[in-house]
Measured scan of single mutants.
Amino acid sequence: GRPPQPKSVEDLLDRINLKEHMPTFLFNGYEDLDTFKLLEEEDLDELNIRDPEHRAVLLTAVELLQEYDSN
């Protein structure tokens, strides 16, 4: 089946190999997954995450988090 739900933002970023963005998220108040899963493209602009590939991966991760919630 699906991988288990990540336990933290750090756990999530670790899985998608984008842990380099951890300080950015923490500094901007994305300390838990409840906050993280509200992330949208405009937020990525504000966080200055410009890499299109990173953005795509992050937004996909957000969608997956929302799916875990609805099940």
Rank of each mutant, 00 (worst) to 15 (best):
G1Q: 14
R2D: 11
R2F: 10
P3Q: 11
P3D: 15
P3H: 12
P3L: 12
P3K: 10
P4Y: 14
P4A: 13
P4C: 12
P4W: 13
P4L: 12
P4I: 13
P4H: 13
P4T: 14
Q5H: 12
Q5N: 11
Q5K: 10
P6A: 08
P6R: 01
P6D: 11
K7R: 10
K7L: 09
K7N: 11
K7F: 07
K7T: 14
K7H: 09
K7Q: 11
S8K: 03
S8I: 04
S8A: 01
S8D: 09
V9T: 04
V9I: 10
V9D: 04
V9L: 13
V9S: 02
E10K: 08
E10D: 06
E10Q: 08
E10S: 08
E10L: 06
E10V: 08
D11S: 04
D11P: 01
D11L: 01
D11Y: 04
D11V: 02
D11W: 03
L12A: 02
L12W: 06
L12E: 03
L12T: 02
L12I: 09
L13T: 02
L13N: 03
L13H: 03
L13C: 00
L13P: 04
D14W: 01
D14S: 11
D14M: 09
D14Q: 10
R15W: 08
R15Q: 12
R15M: 14
R15K: 12
R15E: 12
R15D: 08
R15A: 13
I16S: 07
I16T: 06
I16N: 09
I16V: 10
N17C: 07
N17H: 10
N17F: 04
L18K: 03
L18Q: 05
L18F: 00
L18P: 00
L18W: 02
K19R: 12
K19N: 10
K19C: 08
K19D: 05
E20G: 05
E20I: 10
E20N: 08
E20Q: 10
E20K: 03
H21S: 03
H21C: 06
H21K: 04
H21M: 12
H21G: 02
M22P: 00
M22W: 15
M22V: 13
M22N: 07
M22S: 08
M22I: 14
P23L: 12
P23A: 14
P23W: 11
P23H: 10
P23V: 08
P23I: 08
P23Q: 12
P23C: 11
P23E: 15
T24G: 04
T24F: 01
T24H: 04
F25N: 05
F25W: 01
F25G: 01
F25M: 05
L26R: 11
L26Q: 11
L26A: 11
L26D: 05
F27K: 15
F27W: 08
F27L: 15
F27A: 15
F27C: 15
N28I: 00
N28M: 04
N28Q: 05
N28A: 13
G29C: 00
G29H: 02
Y30Q: 01
Y30D: 04
Y30E: 07
E31N: 14
E31F: 08
E31D: 14
E31M: 11
D32I: 06
D32L: 03
D32K: 10
D32C: 09
L33I: 11
L33Y: 00
L33G: 00
L33T: 02
L33P: 01
L33A: 01
L33W: 00
D34C: 07
D34P: 05
D34I: 03
D34M: 07
D34E: 13
D34V: 04
T35I: 05
T35E: 10
T35P: 01
T35H: 13
F36C: 02
F36L: 09
F36T: 05
F36K: 00
F36Q: 04
K37W: 00
K37T: 05
K37P: 02
K37E: 05
L38F: 10
L38R: 12
L38M: 13
L39C: 04
L39K: 00
L39T: 03
L39H: 02
E40P: 01
E40T: 15
E40N: 15
E40K: 15
E41F: 00
E41Y: 02
E41P: 12
E41N: 08
E41T: 08
E41C: 07
E41M: 06
E41H: 04
E41L: 05
E41V: 07
E42H: 13
D43G: 08
D43Y: 00
D43C: 04
D43L: 01
D43I: 06
L44Q: 01
L44F: 08
L44A: 03
D45N: 10
D45W: 07
D45R: 08
D45H: 06
D45L: 11
E46D: 03
L47Y: 03
L47A: 04
L47F: 02
L47S: 02
N48C: 10
N48K: 09
N48F: 00
N48E: 14
N48Q: 08
I49C: 04
I49A: 00
I49F: 02
I49T: 02
R50Q: 13
R50T: 15
R50C: 13
R50G: 09
R50K: 13
R50Y: 13
R50F: 12
R50W: 13
D51N: 11
D51W: 02
D51C: 08
D51I: 06
D51L: 05
D51V: 06
D51G: 04
P52W: 03
P52T: 08
P52V: 07
P52D: 08
P52N: 06
E53T: 10
E53A: 12
E53G: 10
E53F: 05
E53W: 06
E53Q: 12
H54S: 08
H54W: 00
H54I: 07
H54D: 12
H54M: 07
R55N: 01
A56I: 06
A56P: 03
A56V: 07
A56M: 10
A56N: 11
A56G: 09
A56Y: 05
A56T: 11
V57T: 15
V57D: 14
V57Y: 06
V57P: 07
V57F: 04
V57G: 11
L58Y: 01
L58T: 04
L58I: 14
L58C: 02
L59T: 06
L59R: 09
L59C: 05
L59I: 06
L59N: 07
T60K: 15
T60E: 15
T60D: 15
T60L: 06
T60M: 08
T60G: 14
T60Y: 08
A61D: 03
A61Y: 05
A61Q: 12
A61R: 01
A61N: 07
A61C: 07
V62G: 06
V62N: 06
V62D: 05
V62E: 07
V62I: 11
V62P: 07
V62S: 08
E63D: 12
E63Q: 12
E63Y: 04
E63G: 11
E63N: 12
L64H: 15
L64A: 15
L65D: 07
L65N: 02
L65E: 03
L65S: 04
L65W: 00
L65G: 02
Q66Y: 04
Q66F: 04
E67G: 11
E67F: 05
E67V: 10
E67K: 12
E67W: 08
E67C: 09
Y68D: 14
Y68F: 11
Y68K: 13
D69L: 02
D69F: 02
D69Q: 10
S70Y: 09
N71A: 14
N71S: 13
N71W: 10
N71K: 13
N71I: 11
N71E: 14
N71Y: 11
